[in-house]
Simulated assay, not measured.
Amino acid sequence: MRTLLLFIALSLLGGCAHADKGPGSLPYKYWRLGFLAPDYMEVWVETANVEDIRGQKFFQMGAGTVSVHLPKDGSGNAKGWGERFGWGAGRYVNGADLPKRIYVRWQSLAEPQTYSTTLEIPERARQLMSERLENPCPTIAYRHALAIGLAPGGVIRGWVMSTCDDPIEVFRAQAEVEPKGPSQGKTDGQYALPLEPESRTYIEQHGIPYGSW
């Protein structure tokens, strides 16, 4: 009986030890994909499809408006990305291993223009997402978020981060204009949303700062 109880206890402990581990090489249950844009440069993501390092594909892992700052007093600045920003509007990619590539198609509402590209996620990004933080957050020990910045002109920046450490840039890319236009190539060809008044006013006064991202 004592041997049986010891076996049960060890089994339970083993289950607890692996409860937070994700599939394959992922050291946690899931990672987060988020999208953001510079101040006032509003974006609508039509689709974001993920392929992980095991070849699994996850569709519609991003859609809708992205995280963007729209100060009503005009105090925002669309140039550059700043030193601190959130991890973007998005969702957790459940059941996926570390990301290998991401296809994204989006509407740059500030221009307006539609872009699409397939992002090859570098090995450095996966290494950083797998390393334990030297000074972990209270509940997070890894950089489990991948944030993708989408700017006018099809400029893309990518960072990995956690909820409590600074973002680390892991890639830059340039997307191509989507020849089928907005609305996923449908015949209506309409953009998803009109610009917010704050964005329209900023662009009328300052223009779009191409080359600053």
Rank of each mutant, 00 (worst) to 15 (best):
R2Q: 14
T3R: 12
F7D: 10
A9K: 03
L10W: 12
L12D: 05
C16M: 14
A17K: 14
D20M: 14
K21R: 15
G22Q: 10
S25P: 02
L26R: 06
P27D: 11
K29C: 11
W31T: 04
W31G: 02
R32D: 02
R32Y: 15
L33S: 00
D39H: 15
Y40P: 07
Y40L: 06
Y40Q: 07
N49W: 01
V50Q: 01
I53W: 02
F58P: 05
F59K: 09
A63E: 11
G64T: 13
P71Y: 08
W81V: 04
F85V: 02
V93E: 03
N94Q: 14
A96P: 09
D97W: 07
R101I: 10
I102L: 07
V104P: 05
R105V: 13
R105K: 15
Q107G: 11
Q107C: 14
Q107A: 12
A110Q: 04
P112Y: 11
S116H: 12
S116Y: 05
S116I: 01
T118R: 08
L119D: 06
I121H: 02
P122N: 09
M129E: 03
S130T: 13
L133D: 06
C137G: 11
I140C: 11
I140D: 14
A141D: 15
H144I: 03
H144L: 06
A147E: 04
G149H: 05
G154Y: 00
G154P: 04
V155M: 09
W159G: 04
W159Q: 06
D166H: 01
Q174M: 10
Q174G: 09
A175G: 12
E178A: 14
K180S: 15
S183P: 06
T187A: 15
G189H: 12
Q190K: 15
Y191A: 04
E198H: 08
Q205A: 12
H206L: 07
Y210I: 05
W213H: 12
